[in-house]
């Protein structure tokens, strides 16, 4: 259904359902079948767009990770600011005895 709206002529999605599921799991996103199919198409389109980067030769180019390359500023070691535990825990979905609670983690 989404495919009909596609503006680009898309041959085969670059990503199959299995790959989509793997990525969704890494990102901890639960997708139903419909969403998986929609994302497979969307992501394939986006990757198609992204693949235009390959038109540019970048051999020997230094990667640019930050706009500011002055280097990291260091903070003096000292305790600063206050910690209001009650206020922090008050916004949590589930707490008990000063702890955040989650479903039991099986080690």
């Amino acid at each position: 259904m989404v495919a009909c709206n596609g503006s680009t002529l898309h041959r085969i999605p670059l990503l199959n359902a299995e790959e989509i599921e793997k990525v969704a799991h890494l990102a901890r996103l639960g997708l139903n079948r419909e969403e998986r199919e929609a994302y497979a198409l969307d992501l394939s389109r986006i990757l198609d767009l992204v693949s235009q980067m390959n038109a540019v030769a970048t051999d020997g180019v230094e990667p640019m990770t930050h706009p500011d390359e002055a280097g990291l500023r260091l903070r003096p070691d000292g305790v600063s600011g206050e910690i209001d535990r009650d206020r922090l825990l008050a916004i949590a979905p589930k707490t008990r005895d000063g702890l955040y609670l989650v479903p039991k983690v099986i080690e």
Partner: peptide, 12 residues
């Protein structure tokens, strides 16, 4: 979600 997916994929 779309952008999380594409970003996760690009870093994987």
């Amino acid at each position: 979600k779309r952008r999380i997916m594409i970003g996760t994929y690009a870093l994987s």
